[in-house]
Design a binder for these strands. Sequence first.
DNA 1: TCGTGTATGTCCGATAGCGCACATAGCAGA
DNA 2: TCTGCTATGTGCGCTATCGGACATACACGA
Lengths: 254, 254
Amino acid sequence: MSEAPTPQVNQLLTAAPAEVRERVLPQLEAVHLSLGQVVYESGDIPRYVYFPTDCIISLLYVTEDGDSAEISVVGNEGVVGIAVFMGGESSPSRAIVQSAGYAYRLPAERLKEEFNRDADMRLLMLRFTQALITQMAQTAVCNRHHSIEQQLCRWILLSLDRVPGSELSMTQELIANMLGVRREGVSHAAGKLQDEKVINYKHGRIRVLDRTRLEELCCECYAVVKKESDRLIPLSGNNPSGYPLPYPDSSGVT
Amino acid sequence: MSEAPTPQVNQLLTAAPAEVRERVLPQLEAVHLSLGQVVYESGDIPRYVYFPTDCIISLLYVTEDGDSAEISVVGNEGVVGIAVFMGGESSPSRAIVQSAGYAYRLPAERLKEEFNRDADMRLLMLRFTQALITQMAQTAVCNRHHSIEQQLCRWILLSLDRVPGSELSMTQELIANMLGVRREGVSHAAGKLQDEKVINYKHGRIRVLDRTRLEELCCECYAVVKKESDRLIPLSGNNPSGYPLPYPDSSGVT
DNA sequence: TCGTGTATGTCCGATAGCGCACATAGCAGA
DNA sequence: TCTGCTATGTGCGCTATCGGACATACACGA
């Protein structure tokens, strides 16, 4: 388990107004989040908000009979726990770690204070929230109209953008939970992508071989979300590769 | 075409801090919105925000090949045009009138000013936004896991809560567009509900005969959204019938 | 009162995804 | 190196929904 990246890897922390950052930095605490860890349960009142650096956190909705669906993913471009500043305190979603790594956490109260105190900070958080909303809405349409294969492409691309390298650590079983489909469905779709040499799937490890082709096979949902995120979140757009800034490009396998 | 209800029919206008309300009331303009009217197109920069009184506005996402899905509905409990205060200016959704009636519109700039000026007003808007987020997310899960019949029940209930009386003016064709399914699918589901004497469908007019049963046939998605809205939006929870306050209960047919 | 257009109901085959069962393959630990 | 667990691939019948074609029924206006 490597060291925690610096807080600046998180784009919101980097883009935060200087004085807010100064107040907040000493209070940030690096925490390692492991795969599958539940950060918030549905209805929980968060004590901390999390700024991911090299991890990915999924927001899931779970139905009464156990079916689930991922409604958005958050990586180093964002923060988990928006209900804290949106004023609702809690939300009916579950937040789980989709890719292990480090995040910086801050007491919920502290973010709330900064949000209410500093207009620029507020704008930053709200614009991120709007990007999140776009992601959710697009996911809803995607769930309705696009094939599992297309959705898998979207899912891989969204994840890839939030993680260094071109590899994801994730079983088909878990992806199936995220997409709200059967594992077999994912297996089938992944098989097709492998036949096309677009990805390589090996025991819980996806390696993307041909990102361009992957984007072609994907529905437009990925592009819509990406474009809107780039527009709304500072920095995010300055980095055309989509990979987190402090890492080398996809050339090297981690 | 009857007169416009007072602005107080809109719960956000009613719940707004007194001083904000005083500043804003004289600048509100009643507008009649007719069925199917497009309030915003995807990507538009709104010049006005709309506070519905007795109309319903749907937020839709449309895919490249014309498929659509409703991601949320807004009635007298809310406001349309959140991108204005969220800081993104525009959003990729289309807003269309799902049920004709009146709304009060306010220049976008004015809402933005009040939002930035008054912390209570801000909280009000943000809590409403969080309720909207819940609705979108629940829609995404519902799209994935529930049958057309269940979704139709959810849709009818959500609409009914936002309109006086127990009747909806809406063709199956339009409902199909909202749910992102075929008209035939809606026809089939509506037929089953009619056989059960839960609703009565007659040429673009749905009459709800047995609301209790309708709620039973519905997936939990309606209840989740309703509960969260009641929690987050003031007043909304004070009115257990769920119908807009200034109207008589469902007893009378309009 | 009658016609016309819109709204609804229904039938067909096609297909994507489900649920289940089971075979295989890679990985980790003894 | 062997063993066992976890992850993946695959086959089969089932069902909901799709896509298109068509028949009916209601509502409104001449």
